[in-house]
């Protein structure tokens, strides 16, 4: 089981875009050295949703990531990676809807190749157009609480703030902003990008995120399958800790054993 049992017999579920999921770990597929390695990592991760990118069809390529996802019964989430403008992203989303028969899209509009940071202006423009066109829009954004709120108001099904730049493995650079986004969000908050290792994923969930999306941390690990399992446990543990309620931090000790009395 990949969820958390909140009370006996009552399992914690993620409601996203009108559907329910037990796993709170969304996987990307980029960076895997082979489809076999990817398949094993997806299996170990317990994921129920996984992203793919849309690219020109290469007649020479053998085997498809779609076959792997279909075999595993994993929901395909197309992204608009590589797009720099709202127009490109909207066209890519429409092509993905046509090719993959899903109206879900991870909206990703980047500002430059070096940082791959999301462009907030183009992202917001594309989000409005895609929501109007009937898409379930999951936008990748900076850790900006104001933009997150505006995208929610625009009708996005979730917001996906980054922890750090894509593929950087720097973890969550501004946990305070992630907490602010979580505090005011009425849609799921999915921590996307920057995860380097299991403790980063656990922290995202402890901060109150509803799910974590990661790829490189698993696909580029020395042992992708083992890291995928570590991430599955980290997300579950972080979620349980969030629900359980952590103790406040104190400046001085508080004895956990009764005092000695004369």
């Amino acid at each position: 089981m990949d969820g958390v049992e909140v009370e006996a017999g009552m399992e914690d579920v993620l409601s996203l875009g009108g559907e329910k999921f037990t796993s709170r770990l969304i996987m990307g597929t980029g960076g895997a050295p082979s489809l076999d390695v990817l398949e094993q990592a997806l299996e170990e991760s317990g994921t129920e949703i996984t992203t793919v990118a849309m690219r020109r069809l290469d007649p020479a390529s053998r085997g498809s990531v779609l076959d792997v996802l279909r075999r595993k019964g994993i929901k395909v989430l197309p992204n608009t990676a590589g797009c720099f403008t709202a127009g490109e992203a909207v066209l890519t989303a429409r092509l993905a809807r046509e090719a993959l028969e899903t109206n879900w899209v991870k909206l990703e509009v980047i500002s430059d190749e070096r940082t791959l940071l999301p462009d907030p202006i183009e992202t917001f423009d594309a989000a409005e157009r895609l929501v109007a066109d009937g898409f379930v829009v999951l936008p990748y954004i900076g850790d900006d609480p104001a933009l997150a709120r505006r995208l929610e108001q625009a009708g996005c099904a979730a917001v996906m703030p980054l922890g750090a730049p894509i593929g950087s493995g720097l973890g969550i650079r501004n946990p305070h902003n992630i907490e602010l986004i979580v505090e005011s969000a009425g849609v799921p908050v999915i921590l996307d990008a920057g995860i380097g290792t299991a403790s980063d994923a656990a922290l995202a969930m402890e901060l109150g995120c509803d799910a974590v999306l990661l790829a490189s941390a698993v696909t580029r690990a020395q042992r992708p399958g083992l890291m995928a399992a570590a991430m599955r446990h980290a997300v579950t543990a972080g979620r349980a800790a969030r629900i359980a309620g952590r103790i406040p931090m104190r400046r001085y000790a508080e004895a956990s054993s009764p005092a000695l009395t004369a």
């Binding site: 597929t29 793919v52 690219r55 020109r56």
Partner: peptide, 26 residues
């Protein structure tokens, strides 16, 4: 161009055709 219209949509000189599929990414 939706799949149902592929056979009925005629191309014109100099058209730019993009054929896409899903690949590993994200």
């Amino acid at each position: 161009v939706s799949r149902s219209a592929w056979e009925s949509t005629r191309l014109s000189e100099s058209d730019l055709v993009e054929v896409l599929t899903a690949v590993q990414g994200g």
